[in-house]
Design a protein around this nucleic acid. Structure first.
Lengths: 331, 331
DNA sequence: CTGAAAGCGCTTACAG
DNA sequence: CTGAAAGCGCTTACAG
């Protein structure tokens, strides 16, 4: 009933605990005969080192934590997958801390993360400045910011302003009325404001070509498919074609598409539509969208972490990736 | 630079390490004056107990692990959210272990989970018998199976056969050709076979009313939206209306819907369509579907875990929840 | 290459 | 109510 300890292995192998420990930790200073014998006993007993004791005694953890604001979206699925791929190649284990409700943010930050004893931590899409002003710093070890930026940490993110700008440039050449569907973001939410950046770039491009966007053409909603349909309804009811709609997430774009179909409006003709993210649905539906190099971001994030783990004192680094527009039938 | 230890707190409070430990662990046997003083020092120093040492010394872990086969779907998002809700109410921390690639299953099982030192573990949608015959048992502590069943563990799941049966009964009254779109599931994949169960129930209902389903009307694909569209294309090309299609996931149903629209087929008339899961998209699109009590499953699963944590020796329990059909315009 | 020993930061009977 | 002490399972100089 009792768990098998290093002591048991030592006794049965006829060596000391120190030697067993060296075998476990892959030290070179072990006679290969001895190593073999110890390994056999470990196998026979089904011994597994107690990680807590190991870490307590000063050994290194080999799991990396990832904090993300949600699951259930293609963006994070792809991001996590690409990160895990590289992490596993380096023998790291991964654990995920999703913040599924806003109220739980403090619990994740003050309880889950400190308790995890991970070797390193990725914080994805969080606005670290606001976060760390409300919470005690949750993690002392190597930290890499993904999809957000701070001068105080290694960070990697995608240029959202550029993404919006690309769409804006395209839209400035189009006839008709221009509308934007985006998510309401509050400054102190603790999340990195991506929509606002996209909007900023978009508006910049419009201004450059002498156009402007009336406030009433900006539609702010929650983050859902239905919101896109709702916004579209509003637009179609109160303005006249041709419509140019920048749906700042493909999710919104799907809603717009659906609503347009119901009214017999032709996407790509009566309605020019551009989404954001290049989700698989956008590909299938022929939606013009902005592609973000998600996998690349994930891989480079892991690289940063590995380097930081190697040299904790090295200077902080940051990397900005570029999105690109993918032209399809919808615009 | 050095982390603050219980020793530091003890010294500054003028008590022994034992007393500090008692304060931390909420023991009643501490003078309230003493407690107050210790608490103040803890606060001032920003002391946080080292969880590894704590567990090494025999203290209880307060984090629960959840292993799931994927993220990025509404099903698991809802499931995890409902579980986390209850878990947090009991002061447990949660960590997630998604198995994003089939090849990683062994790493998660043999590395991540044993290393996690969680107090309990939920295994979601895994076929535990096949899993544990290929792997050494990954977790010794309290284990609860969610969305799958084994007589050896506490388990909670939803009756997929009944779900299929409900649809089958409906379809047996319909005119036209009947088709099924489902996912290919191999017996030894390690995942719980939900599609096969749904199919079994579906076929049973059909047989009861004297109908039968030709093998060529069963369309097996991977799990994606596009697969639904692909299957629909196949069906529309090689059979004639009216079509009755049981898409065994709403995801498939969306693909069918899209394909039907492209061809000018009217959903609900030329094409009777039933999905599975009652995702939010199904609601928005008026798709008849089978609703699974996901949140209920999550909550009850946590109840099981809490009870198991309380009384590790209690006898194994299992619970089967019932799905229901939600009738909308599509069928 | 290996053992004996000190140490990691905590918990928990035990004795008072 | 509290301290002194043994113990949790491991790691890692140190000495040989």
């Amino acid at each position: 009933m009792k768990p098998i300890t290093i002591e048991d292995v030592a006794r049965l192998s006829g060596v000391s605990r120190g030697t067993v420990s060296r075998v476990i930790n892959g030290s070179q200073n072990v006679n290969s005969e001895t190593r073999k014998r110890v390994l056999e006993v470990i196998e026979k007993l089904g011994y597994r080192p107690n990680q807590n004791a190991r870490r307590t005694a000063g050994g290194r953890s080999s799991t990396i934590g990832i904090v993300i604001p949600m699951i259930g979206t293609e963006f994070y699925e792809r991001l996590i997958k690409s990160m895990e791929e590289k992490l596993r190649a380096q023998w790291y284990a991964m654990m995920l801390f999703p913040v599924l409700k806003r109220d739980w943010l403090s619990k994740v930050m003050m309880h889950d993360i400190p308790n995890s004893e991970a070797a390193g931590m990725f914080l994805c899409s969080f606005d670290i400045e606001h976060l760390f002003s409300s919470f005690r710093k949750p993690f002392e070890g190597p930290t890499v910011l993904v999809d957000s930026y701070s001068p105080l940490y290694d960070s990697i993110y995608i240029d959202n302003e550029l993404g919006g700008y690309l769409v804006g440039r395209k839209f400035s050449q189009l006839e008709g009325s221009t509308h934007v569907i985006m998510m309401q973001e509050s400054i102190d939410s603790g999340f990195w404001p991506v929509f606002n950046s996209r909007f900023k770039g978009f508006q910049k491009a419009l201004l450059e070509s002498g156009k402007s966007l009336p406030q009433r053409n900006v539609h702010s909603y929650d983050f859902s498919w239905s919101a896109g349909a709702l916004a579209a309804r509003d637009i179609f009811d109160n303005d006249r074609p041709p419509f140019n709609i920048f749906a700042m997430s493909d999710l919104y774009a799907f809603g717009v598409m659906r609503e347009a179909q119901l009214r017999g409006l032709r996407i790509g003709r009566d309605v020019k539509l551009v989404g954001y993210d290049d989700q698989s649905l956008a590909r299938d539906w022929g939606i013009t969208t902005v592609r973000q190099p998600i996998e690349q971001m994930g891989e480079k994030a892991v690289n940063m972490m590995l380097q930081r783990l190697e040299r904790p004192g090295k200077e902080v680094e940051s990397l900005c990736l570029k999105p690109e527009m993918v032209e399809r039938e919808s615009a």
